[in-house]
Design a protein around this nucleic acid. Structure first.
Lengths: 223, 223
DNA sequence: CCTTGAGATAGTGGATACATATTGTGAAGA
DNA sequence: TCTTCACAATATGTATCCACTATCTCAAGG
């Protein structure tokens, strides 16, 4: 290990990966809006690199579903129709319970405690951004026991592609207090504490399904 | 339409796409084996292009899960462990029934007839390659009513990444005649003819699950 | 004999420059 | 006034050249 200590996990010091990370953060953070065009030259100039690594980065994000590439035309931030968004929730209804079941036995006490704190943060009502962050962290952390699995990647991807629409939906739902959501989170946390995979699946299905049904009542988000 | 008639659907006349298609066909056809290295220079030379479109193609295939890219190191045909392959089947058990349910009402009589012919081809016993082609065609065609959906892409990808291992497993199973498989295909075809989504889901779950359990008994495939 | 480190080698990552396709604009004609 | 065709501007796709990193080989030392 004297030479260069290359075993720094999967840290990619490659420019294309850095650009992809930067763009991903910007898209998820809302700096880019769905349907907005992304010009290779702009990104290249802003990041001080040439267009080649930008193209590689765009291809990565395309494969993640965050941007849509069209040959000889350009790249746009992926824009979902309400139908595609609903389909994503239908997939999540089937896969996330399985992922949670897989992850459940691997969640140590410390991890469960952290989930409890996150539920508390959401209930505290710190505003839109705080809820979004805690909600994402809560659910994805509950799958941490199964991280690095193929299913984990699929689910993670779906959380990313729907991030913008969840934000807009949550913005509307915050007005009603999100009481059902908070209750479901408490129930889910309890199932996790009890290490009960069957009940956990049921609650999670209900949670995702109810959100989908509520989302379908707000087609204006996809206008 | 005087200039160049560019409206040929999604036909990608881009070199990188052509190379990706070529490599994909080669990998799925078995010309490349899992774990085998793919050198950019070799592919570039063989296709008469430079390395840049080859890199783009490799990134596409990486995003499809067919090849594995490592920064500053190279590209290899993705090699699955038995655990990863089993996980793929677990995902398929949950998603394909849903996809079939979505596709079912869109399958017209002609499409169902074609499914029937494919079942006949499989039962006819034309050897490994013939069965592989008909089996893939049968299942993927049963989802054709939901083509272009996100779920369809996920499933398609999984059929691709496990293609090599299904071939090896089928090679072993052919000796036993595949009787259960043929019965399940007949049952599934009947459910489709009756337009019964609930029974179709049950049969398909059983079909995938039984295959997974049988696959788990042959770890030597992944040696 | 085994371990370790320096140098050579091969192969990927990136920058610059050029070719090509798409799209927007405007003028000419019906 | 609307349609249509041609041209120009813009952005993407590709080729060539260079730099960097990882791996392999081999020799020196314990």
């Amino acid at each position: 290990m004297t030479k260069s200590g290359h075993d720094n996990g999967h840290r990619e010091n490659v420019v294309s990966h850095r650009i992809a990370d930067s763009l991903r953060t910007a898209i998820l953070g809302g700096s880019y809006r769905p349907g907005e065009r992304i010009r290779q030259e702009d990104v290249a100039e802003r990041s001080g690199a040439s267009r080649i690594p930008v193209r590689e980065a765009l291809r990565m994000l395309d494969s993640e579903g965050l941007v849509t590439l069209v040959a000889n035309s350009g790249a746009w931030v992926t824009k979902l129709t309400i139908g595609e968004c609903v389909e994503t929730y239908l997939i999540r209804e089937r896969l996330e319970p399985l992922l949670l079941r897989t992850s459940l036995p691997c969640l140590v006490a410390a991890a469960v405690d952290r989930l409890g704190r996150l539920v508390g943060e959401m209930e505290a009502g710190g505003g839109l951004d705080a809820f979004m962050r805690a909600d994402r962290e809560f659910h994805l952390s509950s799958y941490a026991g199964a991280a690095s699995s193929e299913m984990w990647k699929i689910i993670h991807r779906m959380w990313n592609t729907t991030q913008h629409y969840r934000r807009e939906f949550t913005r509307l739902a915050l007005a009603d207090g999100l009481t059902a959501t908070h209750l479901e989170h408490r129930l889910l946390l309890d199932c996790i504490r009890r290490q009960d995979p069957d009940d956990a699946e049921r609650v999670l299905i209900m949670h995702i399904r109810r959100t989908r049904l509520a989302l379908e009542k707000h087609p204006e988000i996809f206008a």
